[in-house]
Design a protein around this nucleic acid. Structure first.
Length: 371
DNA sequence: CGGCAAATACTG
DNA sequence: CAGTAT
DNA sequence: GCCG
């Protein structure tokens, strides 16, 4: 079913073009006001166009071009809401978030079946290597480029390097593991193990799995735990618990590697875990937050990123500010939108109240899938 | 032409 | 500090 | 890349 149509009964190109005129003054154009379930994929007539544009956007993201990936994402968002196929420049250009460049590409995709810019990019062997290296945990654009510059082409090339960082070696050793999606049932099973140990250590602790799992996804890239404890006002109050939890789970053989451990005032632990009897290593993160920040942390770590960006932008337009600790009001910014004051905290503990205070209708996690 | 979200925290 | 990750 |  076409969820978007529930929110936007008028989705013909003509009407969307008309909507573009009124978008600027109204906050109602923020995607976080509507959300989405990301479940209207299969029967979209623009499915092929979307797929190609998606790859184009990903390509730009991979080579580190700023903003273009977001622009592609927005254009794709527009196409996803349509129930009619757009196959020419004239129709495409009328749509919101689609300008001359992408409109031309849409026409090319529909007339030739593919996009030469993308074909050329993907045919480049250097880019293939880049994609390979970027999927290594602990490797970003900078490092990947350096290695390519040095002539490295395979993971084996990298393993022979003497100055490989510890985490990068783990990332390569478990390259396939970390790049394998985790079935929802396994996330649940892994999560249950953590929750049981957590409860055993302290009954006042609440541990919930955020990220795509909380949004209802049937597979996840990793397991994101957000952990809080009653009557805590600083993450410092939870550090000893986190250390105990990690120690116990490591001792049990559940945690198999530590990638990032919290500093003295820290709140996050990143590593890997494995289900007993399952050889695959899974990426798992623990974030401890005080009860006073739980709602904001939950909001942030539930995402998705598009939803987060949208709701944060909405906050800033209302002279507020939203981060993983809370919602702040009376934030002063320059005309260039540079931040002058932090503002005062209005809510951090309750996810629903943050929605309320922002004037955003409550969206359960599975309706925050905006990509 | 400038804005496009934002902050924290880790590694080396 | 730059780079990376969330 | 798109938008105002």
């Amino acid at each position: 079913m076409k969820i978007a149509i529930v929110h936007h009964p008028e989705t013909t190109p003509k009407i969307l073009a008309a909507q573009r005129m009124s978008e600027k003054d109204k906050l109602s154009s923020f995607t976080c006001m509507y959300g989405g379930t990301g479940k209207m994929h299969k029967d979209n007539p623009n499915r092929h166009t979307i797929d190609i544009l998606q790859q184009m956007g990903e390509y730009y993201a991979q080579i580190g071009v700023p903003w273009k990936p977001q622009a592609y994402q927005k254009a794709i968002g527009t196409l996803k809401k349509l129930e009619v196929k757009i196959d020419c420049f004239e129709d495409a250009i009328r749509l919101p978030n689609i300008g001359t460049r992408i409109a031309k590409k849409i026409e090319e995709i529909c007339t030739t079946g593919h996009l030469r810019t993308l074909d050329n990019a993907l045919a480049d062997p250097t880019h293939k290597t880049l994609q390979l290296f970027l999927r290594i945990y602990g490797v970003g654009l900078s490092q990947a480029h350096k290695w390519i510059q040095a002539g490295h082409k395979s993971l084996d090339d990298l393993l022979a390097l003497p100055d490989l960082h510890k985490n990068q070696r783990i990332g390569i050793d478990h390259y396939d593991d970390f790049n394998t999606r985790i079935p929802r049932d396994e996330v649940t099973a892994l999560g249950d193990i953590v929750k049981k140990v957590a409860a055993d250590i302290n009954l006042n602790v609440e541990a919930i799995i955020g990220g795509s799992y909380r949004r209802g996804a049937d597979t996840s890239g990793d397991i994101d735990f957000i952990i809080t404890k009653r009557n805590t006002r600083s993450s410092w109050d939870l550090l000893s618990f986190l250390e105990t939890l990690v120690a116990r789970l490591t001792c049990d053989g559940f945690l198999v590697a530590a990638l990032t451990v919290p500093a003295s005032s820290g709140s996050k632990w990143h590593g890997a875990c494995a289900l007993p009897g399952n050889p695959l290593w899974r990426r798992i993160d623990f974030l401890v937050v005080p009860e006073t920040e739980f709602g904001a942390a939950l909001l942030y770590f539930t995402g998705d990123d598009i939803f987060n960006r949208s709701i944060r932008l909405l906050a800033s337009k209302k002279n507020m500010r939203l981060n993983q600790k809370g919602l702040y009001k009376d934030v002063l910014r320059t005309f260039g939108r540079e931040k002058l004051s932090e503002g005062t905290l209005v809510e951090g503990g309750d996810e629903r109240k943050i929605f309320d205070l922002l004037g955003v209708p409550w969206r359960p996690p599975h309706e925050r899938i905006c990509r």
